[in-house]
């Protein structure tokens, strides 16, 4: 998957977790926590959504890489590189 594919996947995950949130103006370099008030339960859900979709395991010590969209995408890029982009 490309950077753009991964960004799209994360956006869709965020939309499912917080369907009331308007994500059109989401800034890629600002922490999700500050923009959407995501808490630890929500971060765990992002991890579980990824596991559900792509069978990837993200160890707890790596959660800090999921702070912003930019960081999440660059963290996931090598992990998801062999996964086909979503149809």
């Amino acid at each position: 998957m490309s950077t753009e594919d991964i960004r799209q996947v994360i956006l869709e995950i965020l939309e499912r977790i917080a369907p009331d949130e308007d994500l059109t103006d989401l800034k890629d370099d600002v922490p999700f926590r500050d923009q959407m008030e995501l808490d630890s339960m929500d971060f765990l859900d992002i991890v579980m959504e990824l596991r559900k979709m792509y069978r990837v395991q993200i160890p707890e010590e790596d959660y800090e890489n999921l702070v912003t969209m930019d960081k999440t995408v660059s963290y996931l890029l090598p992990i998801l590189k062999d996964v086909n982009s979503p149809a």
């Binding site: 977790i17 369907p19 009331d20 949130e21 959407m36 008030e37 339960m41 859900d45």
Partner: peptide, 20 residues
């Protein structure tokens, strides 16, 4: 209120993938 991002109700809705 609708649009609240914090607190037990918002947490609950997110966990259940529900809308306000």
């Amino acid at each position: 209120k609708p649009g609240t991002k914090k607190g037990p109700l918002s947490k609950l809705l997110r966990q259940l993938r529900l809308r306000w």
